[in-house]
Write a protein that binds this DNA or RNA. Structure first.
Lengths: 217, 217, 217, 217
DNA sequence: AATGAATGAGCTTTCATTCAT
DNA sequence: CATGAATGAAAGCTCATTCAT
């Protein structure tokens, strides 16, 4: 548990100014509580209590409750979105404009799947709060377009040119791929986590489904 | 606007005891506000003001704020879920065990697409609040399993037997279909409503994508 | 039950304008609820519900909630206080300036005891609300002084003169007598009604106790 | 006034965790207001205003309004009930099984009389609210039986055996004694405090009244 | 006469935020 | 840095009372 959380929290720490222990406790508590009941229904006093710090301490580190949320969601958004094409493998593949669309897809799915598995509360918060906070939406849109969409676009267009995939508009293709990927993840971890999943197989089938769905024949 | 909303509210009225005008105003205001800022961040005083009634009036009609939410979400859940296989066409198709999986799929998508288009705020609320209210989750699960899942299951199994679709586990197939359907709708109306959509075409392509994705060859 | 209550309510009706059935239901419900939770903690809506009438109906008969209370307490005060010396026997006794102080005492105690037994909720309300409503206090004081105290005073002074009772100040004697009488009643019906009481005996002993207590010896 | 109240509040403080100044102000204000208008008719906002604190401050110290009441009433009940036989004198007397019932009685009356005189608002609240709060009733019953009733019982039985007092059932004797004691106090401080009382004399007479009332001859 | 929907003031309680220690 | 008492605005909810029907 502790290990899990340390790992979970690492993602919030990389690249940012070192957190004091108190700050780490606050973040940990906030993540758990926000994930469970949502930002708006969570109280700073509850977070303080779970974190084992005084209420004032929270506001010493985060000017407002909202800032605490943002300081949780922003890095998750980045870490969730940015590495889609950033794995060693993917970069390699991408640079070679490979035949290997299927393999790229598999890598991406596996990759993001693992990420969500290990950071579920953080991803929950991101998904849930996106609905209510315009600023978070803008942020995600920006990161997404800059780091994912453009590369994806090029890739899809390349494959279309090569006749490897069907001649739908690129945004449509991207939507279909992402929809299937996110659909798998959301069903697996949020809608029906209690079911008995064969993760490996489901990922394979999903890739297969997408490949067939986009095939030219 | 007024017309739109009257239409939107009809769905909340069918089969339930007649609403007084004030009650209708309250529902309308609550739907707008809940959709915009979420249940937890909406205040009853704001709803009352927008509805043009006294705050006490809300509590004369709905014992608690939560009851107001439930009285909005429950009928939406039912109206969103139940008619999936309940269109004239679908029933007919379903009873004939038709070759026509594709056409059934198209009807379903078109059907639900229209529904969301006309009831977007209601659907938004349903999606957003499902995350935080276990009781709503249970409710949906029940409606879904009873009215959608079982029929869907039979249908898929029939097509698999006939060799019309690939031999994935039935739940996997259902997940892929629903994921693509809901993915389209969410992208269209929630993630990127500002884009220039050719709805007809996108629906056709989505059906195509599913059909190919599930094809045995 | 019904019989009991009809009896109980008679006392509220004598000498007043005829009550409609609705009004009787309201009074009955109000008495039960006021007795149980106190005037301030009882709501008119609860009374209306228990009475089986609309909330508005209460205010058609009683301008305010307070008026409803007063219309219950005033007659009780009168009926509780006034007949102390008003029994046939007592009047007779009193007019004859009898030797028979003891018998008078017994009659009074027996008399008031029965009254409380049959009108407990009403007496409860009177006792409880007296504490908070100055106007009720004034009312009781007036009735008490006019109908009880003065007569009592004369009686006591007569017996003192005759050497039948000890030479305490008259108010002191009255206090002792009333204290013992009310002490019995309150203990019997309010403090420890669940005990196994031999009412007859306790009344006799209480009279005995007072007589000895006041004896010149 | 301030002095009086400091004294009055001491009784609430002994043995409990130190109160902050604000908390003391809250208690003081609550006692005054509860005593005057009753718990149910007092508002926390009124208490806050009189105490010169923000309304929120009340709820920082007492989770609910009811808890504020209990934190006032409980210590009063204990301090009012427990020391009945706990004075130096009384203990001494009680241990010696003294001839001296009369003197014991006098000490008790004097003792409790002083207590009420110095803590009138607190005693008022206790008496008034006992009627509406079952939990308080239970509490008092327990304290009373454990610390007063049993000892009283033994004492009375001893005197009856010695032929010093009349052969009434012990509970009856206790009722008569307590009734006369409480009757004096209630008349003196609550029913008719405006009269010109000779406290010393009234206490003596009351003891005399009880002694004669219980005498065997 | 009776209803019950509507009111709005006021209730208890919560909560993000501040600040003296 | 950390605390936690204090704040006061705002929350959800209740309630006595009014009034059109």
């Amino acid at each position: 548990m502790k290990n899990d959380f340390n790992q979970l929290l690492q993602i919030l720490e990389e690249g940012e100014p070192k957190k004091t222990p108190k700050q780490a406790q606050i973040l940990k508590a906030a993540v758990e509580i926000f994930a469970e009941k949502g930002y708006a229904s969570s109280s700073t006093s509850e977070i303080a209590e779970k974190a084992g710090v005084a209420e004032g301490t929270i506001f010493r580190h985060y000017k407002t409750k909202k800032e605490l949320l943002v300081s949780i969601v922003t890095p998750v958004m980045v870490k969730f979105t940015l590495p889609v094409f950033a794995s060693h493998f993917a970069e390699q593949v991408f640079e070679q404009r490979p035949e290997n669309f299927k393999e790229l897809l598999y890598k991406i799915i596996e990759n993001r799947f693992e990420f969500v598995k290990e950071n579920l509360p953080l991803v929950r918060i991101m998904l849930q709060e996106m609905a209510f906070h315009q600023d978070l939406q803008e942020q995600l849109k920006q990161v997404f377009i800059e780091h994912v969409y453009t590369r994806f676009e090029h890739l899809i267009e390349y494959y279309k040119q090569e006749g490897k995939i069907i001649e739908y508009p690129t945004p449509t293709v991207i939507r279909m791929v992402m929809t299937s990927l996110i659909g798998l993840i959301v069903t697996r971890f949020i809608v029906a986590p209690q079911l008995d999943w064969d993760d490996e197989k489901e990922m394979e089938r999903t890739v297969q489904f997408i490949m067939h769905g986009l095939s030219t024949k």
